[in-house]
Structures are given as structure tokens and as C-alpha cells.
Design a protein around this nucleic acid. Structure first.
Lengths: 254, 254
DNA sequence: TCGTGTATGCGAGCACTGCTCTCACTTTGC
DNA sequence: GCAAAGTGAGAGCAGTGCTCGCATACACGA
């Protein structure tokens, strides 16, 4: 009947009511489901993620999964949030590793490379975040927080650059000025329109280069996509730092 | 029994053996399947494309579809090839519409906008080409020809620019020089390493900006993604044309 | 003109999916 | 101690891609 949780019964029976046997079993089961889901994700991609397969791996009836996640989409949402968090963490630590905080080019490189390395190391997770959205799946509110984590790290860089005296002179389309105005209010970042625009352009470049590499559009074109990525980051970095004041434009920390 | 093809029977019975009644019916059926498939694609995305649903729309037994396409993947391949061809055509005509052939900035704008406009007008098809590949689906050789069509148009531009005296001075990572060498041989394009690199960076930017917009990563950030795209194209265009010789760097044709 | 081989469509069936519902059982809280 | 809530099993529904055997209609050579 309940052999499925015998593992937990044995360990938890002794501690009994200490924290609620049910509560703890639930937490462990949920974590186990997520773990198996991520494992399947890495093997077969999000499209092939199967609740029934997870249930089988878990030694459960497929219907029991629905006690923990109301639907496949809800499980996917959980995976998305987790992945955004991991990516954000990777980018943040990469930035923090750069000792000279005023070496903006070095920090830009570090973060851009961190995104790519995370993507290459976790292609299925990256695809889950940045690939074709599943039709009919609308990202719930819970995802937008974690989703912005890695971008905030990038924006922070541009803000610090401007505070240090860097400027940007590019013309900004009037249509975007309103967007940027709202953006500044919403996220409380004192970045100029020009800087935001260059930042977004750099962001798009980085993501575009990773996508092309990861989805196979560089096959038979470039054997060393890492080198191409490096060049793209360099070009975009120069554009970001153009109109520089005094700081160094080169570095070798990564 | 065969009411399903009555429409064809009536029209084709009269012409009889003129071109092989079977051959023509087969061609019409195949075209109809593709047509319905594309229709479904636009409505629900590639992930939800269902052979059974197509068969229903066609008034056929689901098993009969397999007389025309060996598998769902084969049908998808056909759709991919068609879509690449349409995209390529859109880009080529956009380029051809620019009267002043030496207005390289204008031609760059025209082609970049053509890609985005095609993507926005056909999001499902664009996703099919540039989104997450279906795990386990390996793009067959047949696709690489059509896939390169739109890129060749872009590369052609850089070649013409260089022929007109434009130069690029960016440093190219040594790892990429071999790739570019092979690329020149394979496609017989006399573009310098520097120019190819700038071209690829511009390509990545454009695709990245479109992806961010189309997959919803600009929601609550930019209300007018078209304007952002325009700015990205402008920035990348300037970088492409930097080190310019004499030609105009601005235009207003699109 | 008459077979014969081939192309085609149908329907049943297999193995899989997400998801729902009912029923039995266990833990929890009063 | 007992009712309420939580949890798992199992059957079942509707859908999927795909295969196989069978019947029929066309194409082509004798």
C-alpha cells in the first residue's frame, strides 16, 4: 500500500511528531520530484518531460504526482524559477570574482562568459528559459522576479559605469524614452537612456550568439563557437565602454 | 470508402490519364497536408502539431497520412525547408528593393527589418526555425541549403562592401581564422576575416533581439520592441560600416 | 481486353501521454 | 477517540505517433 514511502517511514518514525511527519515527507517528496524532473529535463529536454516517467522513477502511481504539482505546467514553472535562480547566481558570483570593481570591461566579460558557460553546461535548462515558449503556457508572475536576476546584475554594471563618469552619446528613439523612463522608476536604477539602450543591445547580442551556438545554427560554419562568442563580447564591450572617461578598457580577469 | 478524395475524383476523372491520375492526386494530397500543417503550426505552434488532427481536417484516417510522410519529423522537416525558403525570399526581395546598391546601410537595414517583420508576421514558423530544437530531431541535410539562403544575402552585402573599399580592422581570434578560411572556400565568398566577424556579430545581434522580443523577454520592459530593434540595427550597422571609405552611412530607404 | 502488381485508404491496435475521479488508508487537530 | 484533511492506488478518458493486415482502385504489360 504505502511501500513507496517506506524509506521515509523508517527514518521519520523515530522523530515522530517533531516537525510533522507528513510535512517532512511532503517536502522530501516534492524535492525528489523536482530532482527527477531536472534529471529528465537534462536528458530529453522540456518537451519530453513526462510526469508518468517521474512517477515510475519514484515508484509512485502517476496520479499521486498531482498531490504535489497541480499540472505539468506547474512543475515546469518550478523548474523555470529554479533555473533562473541558478543562472542569476552564476552571473552574480562571476561579477563578484572580479577584484578590481572599476574594471568594467573585465566585469562585462566575466558576466557574459558566465551566461554562456552556464548555457553550455545546462543546455536543456537554458532552452527552457530562453527557447520557444510552450504554446498555451503563460509564464506566471512568480517567474518574473527570478527572471530579472541575471539582467539586474548587467544593469548594475552600466549604472556603476555611469556613476564613474562614463557617458553614452548614442541617439535614442523617442518611442523608447517612455519605456526607459518607466524602467528607471520600476527598478529604481539611475541609468541614462543612452546607457540603457547600449546595455540592451549588448544583452541581445550575447543572448543571440548563445542561441545560435546552442541551437546548432553555427554547425558547419564555426567550429569554435567559444572564440566567436569571445569576439562578440569584445565588440559589444567596446561599444558599451565607448565614450569612456578614464578607466582602463582592457583587462585579463575573467 | 473513398469519399475523402471525391473532390479530386470529380475534377480529375475527366482528364484521366493525361498526367497520371494517381500522381496528380498524390501531389494535391501532399500539398493539402502541408497546407493544413502550416495552418495548425500558426495556431498552436510546432509542439502541438498533430498528424491525427490533420487527418481529421482532411477527412482521412490518421494512418493514411503515413503514405505521404513517413513520420511527424519528416513533415516538420518539410515545413522547416519551406519556411527557410520563405524567409530567404523575404530577405532577398527586401535587399533588391533598395535602389541605390551602394547604400550599404540602407540595404543592411532593409534585410534586418525584413527578418524581424517576417518573424513577427510568422512567429510559429520563426520559432520552428530558430527556437529550441526538438530533442532527438536532427536536421537532415536537406535543410542546410534553404537554411543558408537568408544568411548568404547578408554575407553578400559584406562582400560588396569590401569590394567597394570598406575595410575592417578588428582583431580576429586565431581560433576563428581557420573557420573563416574554410567558410570562404566552401561558399566561395571573398570576405576578409574581419568583415566576416563583424557580420557574424551583427547577425547574432539581430537574431538575439528578435528572439528576446518574440519569446516574451521584453514584456514589462519595452513596450515598443520595434523601436529597440531599430536601435540595435542602427548600432550594429554603424559597426559594420565603421572604417568606411567614402559611401554614405545614412539613408532612409527601408 | 484482361490480369497482375502496386499504390492507397481504412480500421484496429499498441504504447505512450496529461489528467480526473473514486476509494481506501493514514496522519492531524480538536 | 473521532472527525477532518492529506495522501496514494487504480481505473478510466481523451488524446498522441505509429504499425499492421486487409480491401480496393489504379497502372501497365501481355
Amino acid at each position: 500500500m504505502q511501500e513507496h514511502c517506506s524509506r521515509f517511514d523508517v527514518t521519520l518514525a523515530t522523530v515522530a511528531h517533531v516537525a510533522g511527519i507528513r510535512e517532512r515527507a511532503r517536502a522530501e517528496h516534492t524535492a525528489e520530484i523536482v530532482r527527477l524532473a531536472r534529471q529528465q529535463l537534462d536528458l530529453d529536454g522540456a518537451a519530453n518531460l513526462s510526469l508518468r516517467a517521474i512517477a515510475r522513477d519514484l515508484g509512485m502511481a502517476s496520479s499521486a504526482i498531482y498531490r504535489y504539482f497541480a499540472s505539468r505546467d506547474e512543475l515546469l514553472t518550478r523548474l523555470i524559477i529554479d533555473s533562473y535562480d541558478r543562472l542569476g547566481k552564476a552571473v552574480e558570483t562571476a561579477d563578484r570574482m572580479v577584484k578590481r570593481r572599476k574594471d568594467y570591461m573585465g566585469r562585462w566579460r566575466a558576466m557574459a562568459f558566465a551566461i554562456r558557460e552556464w548555457a553550455v553546461a545546462n543546455p536543456a535548462e537554458y532552452s527552457l528559459l530562453f527557447g520557444t515558449p510552450v504554446p498555451g503556457y503563460a509564464a506566471p508572475q512568480d517567474t518574473i522576479g527570478p527572471a530579472s536576476r541575471y539582467t539586474i546584475a548587467l544593469i548594475q554594471l552600466t549604472v556603476e559605469m555611469e556613476a564613474a563618469g562614463h557617458s553614452a552619446t548614442e541617439t535614442v528613439p523617442t518611442a523608447l524614452r517612455r519605456d526607459y523612463e518607466r524602467f528607471r522608476d520600476q527598478f529604481a536604477v539611475p541609468a541614462s537612456d543612452q546607457m540603457l539602450m547600449k546595455g540592451m543591445a549588448a544583452w541581445a547580442s550575447v543572448m543571440g550568439a548563445i542561441n545560435l551556438e546552442l541551437w546548432g545554427h553555427l554547425h558547419n560554419v564555426v567550429d569554435t563557437p567559444g572564440a566567436l562568442f569571445e569576439a562578440v563580447v569584445e565588440l559589444q564591450g567596446q561599444q558599451l565602454i565607448s565614450g569612456t572617461s578614464a578607466q582602463s578598457r582592457t583587462s585579463n580577469s575573467a
